[in-house]
Design a protein around this nucleic acid. Sequence first.
DNA 1: CAAATAATTGAGATTGTGTCTCAATTATTT
DNA 2: AAATAATTGAGACACAATCTCAATTATTTG
Lengths: 144, 144
Amino acid sequence: MSDQHALQQFIDFLQAEGKNITRERLDIFNEVLHQKSHFQIKDIIQKKSNSKHRISRATVYRTIKTIEEAGLIKYIRTINDEKIYETVKEHHDHMICEVCGKIMEFYDRDLEDLQNIICNSYHFTPVRHTMKIFGICEGCQKKK
Amino acid sequence: MSDQHALQQFIDFLQAEGKNITRERLDIFNEVLHQKSHFQIKDIIQKKSNSKHRISRATVYRTIKTIEEAGLIKYIRTINDEKIYETVKEHHDHMICEVCGKIMEFYDRDLEDLQNIICNSYHFTPVRHTMKIFGICEGCQKKK
DNA sequence: CAAATAATTGAGATTGTGTCTCAATTATTT
DNA sequence: AAATAATTGAGACACAATCTCAATTATTTG
């Protein structure tokens, strides 16, 4: 998904919700797009409180929430319970290294299928799920 | 695992760590054991600040952390991002109803095996994992 | 056993995250 | 252009969790 397309999705969402398309909102969304794959709110706040057109903390929180509601970002929790956001691409799960904190994404079709089968047997209708595997990444294993 | 056994495990842990076995620690641990399966720290704080031998908020936090380190409890996050603790029994995963908030536990051997296979293919050594499936429980489906 | 040492506790201060309030500003509608 | 509605910024507020430090309690040692 290109940045342009993502931006359009965000604008569509704002319009659908009857929200105004303001400089602040677009500005924060652009900042989100230009972050490295995993970022924290404090990074955005920091960046935006120094920038030329400074934006307040409250507005950053409000807008991040809006982008989340638009389904364009989501967060996971690290080992230290920090919220780490990422832009939503295809669905995937995570492996998190307990040594260096690296976050890896993976997707496995069999796993998804199996989950649906399990839910079925519990008469539970799945909507979404999160799975995190904590362990030691290849690099950290070699270092030891 | 009986409460007696759990208590012994906690005492063993304290001793192994060179920590004193105090009334406050045992008292909080007992409270944890007597909670219903899923509880929150504020429940314990509330109970212990009224009880005969009152215990401070700080000590409750400290002790819950210790019990967690002992591997005897762990927490999950609800839809509202609240921490919900549970005593550690056999490993299991969770289904969480987005309507009523009910938390169900399940265990599936195939799922566990599959996870190990996936990790293997990524050269990642798994230590533990959490999986939460959000959706709608049987009861809430029927209500609609 | 008593003194010395070490660990723990309680109370409240502090930190950090996130939300709320409300006046001022900006955008939209009429 | 005036009236109306939405958004923003600043700081207050709420809450969870941690920290500080003096007072207390437990443990060790002579």
